[in-house]
């Protein structure tokens, strides 16, 4: 779970609050999102992972702060490595 949130709706709301209320994301928060996504991979919940990543991509790439774009790239890179190790292929993010 992410900061006590389990449901996709709660996760999305939390991510939106994070991206819209913070201009300079902390490394600890970014790592926490990576850990949450890694847990989804371990739980084989790739459908939820896909939705979470696509939502983050929309949120973070909409942001005028380039630091959020970099944060998304960092999160995605880390997740793709874990997926590659677990499934032998990467997730296609359209």
């Amino acid at each position: 779970n992410l900061a006590g949130a389990f449901e996709l709706g709660d996760i999305k709301a939390l991510l939106k609050e994070w991206v819209t209320s913070i201009s300079d994301p902390m490394e600890e928060d970014i790592l926490q999102v990576v850990r949450y996504c890694t847990d989804l991979i371990e739980d084989k919940d790739l459908e939820k992972l896909d939705l979470v990543i696509k939502y983050m991509k929309r949120l973070m790439q909409q942001s005028v702060d380039s630091v959020w774009n970099m944060a998304f790239d960092f999160i995605l890179d880390n997740i793709q490595v874990v997926i590659q190790q677990t499934y032998g292929s990467t997730l296609k993010i359209a």
Binding site: L2, A3, G4, W18, S21, I22, M26, E28, D29, Q32
Partner: peptide, 20 residues
Amino acid sequence: TSKGSAMSNFFGKTASRKAK
């Protein structure tokens, strides 16, 4: 309450807020 590092980041704060 103490102000540990977990309390100063966004998700740490949110988690402690929800726990109350």
